[in-house]
Simulated assay, not measured.
Amino acid sequence: MKKKLWSWLLAAAMVLPILSTPSWAAGYTQTRYPIVLVHGLLGFDNIGPFGYWYGIPSALRDGGAKVYVAQVSATNSTEVRGEQLLTQVQQILAITGASKVNLIGHSHGGPTSRYVASVRPDLIASVTTVGGVNKGSKVADVITGALPPGSFGDTVFNSIVGAIGTLIDFLSGGSGMPQNGSAAIKAQTTATMAAFNAAHPEGVPPTACGEGAYQARGVSYFSWSGAKAYTNVLDVIDPALALTSLAFSGAKNDGLVASCSTHLGRVIRDDYAMNHMDEVNQTIGLVNIFETNPVTLFRQHANRLQGMGL
């Protein structure tokens, strides 16, 4: 009898870990529609073995999701990037036979994704912004204030940032996408985003720090973001983000975007102990070890979309 009891206990001990970690079960991230990841400013899909979405596409695919990584201009206006993304979405739909896609955009990839959903809602099941510049960034405001359009400084800045964007496009195997550094920064100012939101209001909160419509024109909207600029002493990017966070005068931010500015549709959370790059598991996974891993957040969200039939 005692031997049988121990056998049952041993079997239970083996099964419980499996039952308590459903996020790694087969099919956990298998959404109805393909997921398309959209990078932000100076972003890319892959440069050699190094991916902008470090470890995220493979983790989603391991759970059953069909995942595509968009490649739009590293530096340009929201509308230019949005038209590029729209073309890629149409190509993905043609390849997969799906009728819609789920867009997940980081940083400037948020408004870029929103543009596509606004002009072609029939092709989009959901838009999720991660650290999205949905109401602009004070960092962009500071840069444009210091470098007025048409000034010598603006010309030099545009040349440098545009050249970096061109290099990124080349290294990531791009097809010579147009780059415009000034347009990229201007697109993320609070003034430009206010005008953009007036033209594309879907999911935008009507209050300064509230939630927006969870669904608009058949598209579901979500957002999440971090609120801690310095998270890992080994990450070489963290000191720069700690510096840029000073532009927010103490308001909650991830180093580049104020938490309230990232809100769109259903706000999952805006206070993860992550900075702007942690949100996409950068740099190469050097994130806050005391916070939920960003890869886990993406897997959980894919499962959320699955549960909604998306």
Rank of each mutant, 00 (worst) to 15 (best):
G105Q: 01
P239E: 04
L10Y: 12
A13N: 09
G64F: 13
T21D: 12
D235H: 05
N180D: 15
H108E: 09
V280P: 07
V267K: 14
R61Q: 15
S159R: 13
S73K: 06
G165M: 10
R81V: 02
D154C: 13
N158M: 12
N76S: 13
V280I: 15
E79M: 09
D154R: 15
L171I: 08
A213I: 05
A183T: 11
D270P: 10
Q306C: 02
T112P: 03
S182A: 13
F196Y: 13
A70Y: 10
D45C: 03
I95E: 09
Q179W: 14
Q188R: 06
T112V: 06
T262D: 14
N180V: 12
I237G: 01
A208C: 01
T75V: 12
L37P: 07
N197D: 06
S159A: 15
F248Q: 10
V38F: 09
V142C: 00
L264T: 14
A229Y: 04
Q282F: 06
G307Y: 03
A117R: 05
V287Y: 02
V127E: 07
L41E: 01
A26V: 13
Q306E: 05
D235Y: 03
E202I: 01
R81W: 00
R304C: 07
Y68A: 08
W6N: 09
V257A: 02
L103F: 01
V127L: 04
V101Y: 00
L86N: 01
Y272F: 15
R32P: 04
G150P: 08
S261D: 14
T192E: 11
G55Y: 05
A125I: 06
A227C: 11
Y33A: 12
Y33V: 11
I168H: 10
H200V: 00
A199K: 08
